[in-house]
Design a protein around this nucleic acid. Structure first.
Lengths: 147, 147
DNA sequence: ATAAACATTCGACTATGGTTTAATGCAAGA
DNA sequence: TCTTGCATTAAACCATAGTCGAATGTTTAT
């Protein structure tokens, strides 16, 4: 069983354009061509493409995905390299997730402030403070169009 | 106390270029200018810039950050809009975090496979299967340069 | 045999989020 | 005064990750 690029696109969730783009970028050196130059995707190809998607979806750059694919193509000797590459990526993703969670918790604080019954009062106090800060520096103020 | 763009850059963790870029994109309408046209950043300004950074760091697009900033500038009447905007953003971020965690867990599976004592054997089996799949379809095989 | 529906490549185009450069101006210290 | 260091703008440039259109070829069904 092989698949055309359109079928591979459906199965992988990528667009045919993206698959061609990835191929051009060296991410799909394992995809064969039939006698007239059309790509023939196998199930094994789609498994590796799935892994590529996992890396892409977690933010790995094309350049590093290519490194990984090349290591896969080079055979079992590169297993330590793959562990290093994936392990470092894993750590980077976790760190990024942590940072996002931190930033999100600040957004949550804002949301809670806005949902507070006294939100209007508090927001008005903020505006007053910001405005006074501008005034005390003889700066123009743009809150509420009070220029 | 006011800050030059350089000092504001240091305090916010952004580059001066980014601050100018954000200003150009309408994210900093609250930043005043002194008599010769230089930006004067106040502490209140930096607080709002901090919020902007939280939104940016969680992946909000410039266009939506601008919407938020405009709502802030428009005063307390827009609090429900802000809650909607931030609430939707929050949900989107959580969903994205969930997807990333899912993809990462598949990467973890790969890592565990590679760290298995039988990793080489298993990888060789994979290559064998992939190769046989290609052969059975009369396709060229590129694993191990066995073209 | 001809049209529809695929496939190919190449180069141009888009979007996003900046960074860099060039020309210019202001301000403060030697 | 003159140099140094900061500021301004507009426009060009960059990186990333695609997407699209044109020209062309293939396969299939009618």
């Amino acid at each position: 069983m092989t698949y055309t690029i359109k079928q591979a696109a459906e199965k992988s969730g990528l667009s045919a354009s993206s698959l061609r783009y990835y191929d051009k970028k060296g991410l799909l050196p394992f995809v064969s061509r039939n006698r007239i130059g059309y790509r023939d995707f196998t199930d094994s190809d789609l498994k590796l493409i799935h892994t590529i998607c996992c890396l892409k979806n977690t933010g790995m750059k094309i350049r590093n995905i290519r490194r990984y694919v090349n290591e896969v193509m080079a055979g079992p000797d590169t297993i330590p390299d793959r562990v290093k590459l994936l392990g470092e990526h894993r750590a980077a993703v976790l760190d990024e997730q942590r940072k996002i969670a931190e930033n999100l918790s600040e957004i949550d604080n804002k949301l809670n402030r806005y949902r507070d019954p006294d939100a209007i009062k508090k927001v008005n106090t903020d505006i007053k403070n910001a405005t006074e800060e501008k005034i005390s520096e003889s700066l123009s103020n743009s809150y509420f169009n009070n220029n």
